[in-house]
């Protein structure tokens, strides 16, 4: 009698559930504007939507392909399905999954990382859904606090706070590796100030340089035995 590997069956089902959930979400999201259009009595202008897609959407299409290729290895398969459905990758899901991997002490590309990543992204997404639902429910009483001139600078700086904290965690053990990408990026942003609006694209050359340096370091370590 053959014993089925529980992890193999988990992975298989993850893909089935992930694909169904993705397909249903896609239909719901693309269908919603038409349902709302019917409710409002005015269907979307498909010509204007097509023109808009060419002017705004193509950039995001390229960006989505890059995000998929670069981030899926960090997220794992289950985490990948969830993160693409729930969004907010750079400012939430990726740091959350990477930090969880670190806390749990698991390595990328392993079964354990797959579990940790899925768990962390699912929890992060649920917390986001709950916070947003509570926020929407309590919008009127919360509005003066959230938009207060004192607190506003804090909420404007969530992403710098996140990357500052992560920088300490990751630069600490890899100072040599972090130095060159940081120097290169700082120089580029200083010399070409307009690049600041393209920070998410600049992740690619920065990441590529870091991976290249890590590769040389790794080869050197292996050669040294």
């Amino acid at each position: 009698m053959s014993m089925k590997d529980p992890y193999e069956s988990y992975t298989k089902k993850t893909h089935v559930i992930g694909r169904i959930a993705t397909l249903v979400t896609l239909c719901l999201l693309l269908g919603a504007p038409f349902v709302i259009g019917a409710y409002l009595g005015a269907m979307p202008d498909l010509g204007a939507a097509a023109r808009g897609f060419i002017s705004v959407g193509l950039v995001w299409t390229v960006s989505s392909v890059v995000e998929f290729l670069v981030y899926l290895p960090m997220l794992g398969s289950g985490g990948g399905y969830l993160a693409m459905i729930t969004g907010n990758l750079i400012n939430m899901k990726i740091p959350c999954a990477v930090h969880s991997r670190d806390l749990a002490g698991v390595k990328a590309g392993t079964k354990e990382n797959e579990i940790v990543s899925t768990l962390s992204i699912a929890v992060s997404s649920l917390v986001t859904v709950l916070v947003l639902a509570a926020g929407v429910l309590l919008l009127q009483p919360l509005l003066p606090v959230l938009e207060s001139r004192v607190l506003r600078p804090a909420f404007d700086q969530v992403v710098p706070a996140l990357f500052g904290a992560m920088a300490f965690r990751y630069y600490r053990g890899h100072l040599k590796l972090a130095l060159w990408p940081l120097l290169l990026m700082s120089a580029l942003f200083i010399l070409v100030p307009s690049l600041r609006s393209q920070t998410s694209i600049m992740i690619l050359p920065s990441g590529a340089l870091a991976i290249l340096l890590a590769w040389f370091g790794w080869k050197k370590e292996r050669a040294a035995g």
Binding site: P160, F163, Y171, S206, G207, A210, W218
Partner: peptide, 26 residues
């Protein structure tokens, strides 16, 4: 030995560096 884990850490360092670099440039 696998390079995968190191590559992921390096990619994340690259991501963080892009943002910190943008704050320095800014």
């Amino acid at each position: 030995p696998s390079f995968g884990d190191t590559a992921m850490t390096a990619m994340f360092i690259g991501l963080v560096s892009a943002y910190i670099g943008s704050y320095i440039g800014g």
